[in-house]
C-alpha cells in the first residue's frame, strides 16, 4: 500500500484481513459494512492466519474473495454443518460462517438450530435483510408482514405466507449457545455496536465458550426498490421495531469479556 499520510495521522485504511478484490455488492448495500467489521476484528485479534471462513449461497456467495484467510464455499443453508466438520477436525482453528436470512432461517434452519444445540464452537454472522437478495428479491422467512417482494407481490399475507422468524430469540433458547445478539447497520453508532458484538462473538469462540451468533439488520436497496439512504431509514423505522436490538443470550463466561 502506498502511504500518503503519516502513520500518526492515519485514521482509516483497508484492514489487513481484507484482500484488494473490488466489491461486487450493490452501491449502498450493508453486506460490505459487515465484511469490513469482521476484517477489523480479525486484525485486532490477530486471527486471520488461523481462521477458516465458510461462505453461504446468497449475495455473499463470493465472500471468500474479500478475506485474506482460508475459505470454503457451502451449499445453500449448509454452512453450519460444513463449519462443524472443519472445527471438529481442527479445534484450534477459528471457524466462522457468514449467512443470509434465506440461507440461515429457511433452507438451513435445521443446520443452524443443531449447530447451536450442540454448542458447536463456531461464530455465525447472520445478515438479515428481510429478502432473498441474490435471486432477485423474493420473500424471505424474515420478510415483514405486508412487505412487497417478487413472490409476495401484494405484500406478505401472514394468513397464507406465515409470520417472520426471529432467529436470535429462537437460538437464545439453546443451551449450547454462548453468545446471541442482534445489532443493526443503519447508522455509525449501531455499526460500532455491531463491531463490538462481532468481537465478543469471536472471543467467545477463542475461549471455547460455545456457539456464537451476531444477527445484523441489513439493507438491500436494490430489491427493496428504494435508495441506499432511504434503506437505512427503513431499517430504523420498520426492521428495528420488528426485530428488537439487544443481547438475547450472554452465557456466564462470556459476560465478562471486554470488547
Amino acid at each position: 500500500m502506498v502511504t500518503i499520510v503519516k502513520p500518526e495521522n492515519l485514521v482509516y485504511s483497508r484492514p489487513q484481513a481484507f484482500t484488494e478484490f473490488p466489491t461486487h455488492y450493490c452501491p449502498g448495500c450493508t453486506h460490505g459494512v459487515a465484511h469490513r467489521l469482521i476484517a477489523e476484528v480479525l486484525d485486532e485479534m490477530a486471527l486471520t492466519e488461523r481462521t477458516i471462513g465458510v461462505a453461504p449461497v446468497g449475495c455473499s456467495v463470493f465472500a471468500y474473495n474479500y478475506f485474506d484467510c482460508d475459505f470454503v464455499e457451502a451449499a445453500h443453508g449448509r454452512a453450519p454443518a460444513m463449519a462443524t466438520g472443519i472445527k471438529r477436525v481442527l479445534p484450534e482453528r477459528i471457524v466462522f460462517t457468514y449467512q443470509g436470512d434465506g440461507d440461515l432461517a429457511s433452507i438451513g434452519m435445521a443446520e443452524i438450530m443443531h449447530a447451536a444445540a450442540r454448542g458447536e464452537n463456531i461464530t455465525v454472522v447472520f445478515i438479515n435483510n428481510a429478502i432473498y437478495g441474490m435471486t432477485g428479491g423474493q420473500m424471505a422467512p424474515t420478510t415483514l408482514p405486508g412487505m412487497k417482494t417478487t413472490s409476495s407481490p401484494l405484500g406478505r399475507d401472514v394468513e397464507t405466507q406465515g409470520f417472520p422468524i426471529r432467529m436470535s430469540e429462537i437460538l437464545a433458547n439453546m443451551d449450547g449457545a454462548g453468545y446471541i445478539v442482534r445489532r443493526s447497520l443503519h447508522d455509525p453508532k449501531n455499526i460500532r455496536m455491531a463491531k463490538k458484538a462481532i468481537r465478543i462473538a469471536f472471543e467467545t469462540q477463542v475461549r471455547g465458550l460455545g456457539f456464537s451468533m451476531v444477527e445484523l439488520l441489513s439493507t438491500c436497496p436494490t430489491n427493496w426498490g428504494i435508495s441506499p439512504l432511504e434503506s437505512l431509514t427503513w431499517v430504523e423505522e420498520h426492521m428495528v421495531p420488528a426485530y428488537p436490538l439487544g443481547d438475547y443470550k450472554v452465557a456466564a463466561g462470556v459476560a465478562g469479556i471486554k470488547a
Binding site: A75, A81, M82, T84, G85, I86, A110
Partner: peptide
C-alpha cells in the same frame, strides 16, 4: 441432525 447435515460435515472436514 440428518444425512443432509452429515454429508456437509463430511464436506467441511474433507476440505481440511
Amino acid at each position: 441432525e440428518s444425512e443432509v447435515a452429515a454429508i456437509n460435515m463430511i464436506y467441511g472436514a474433507a476440505c481440511t
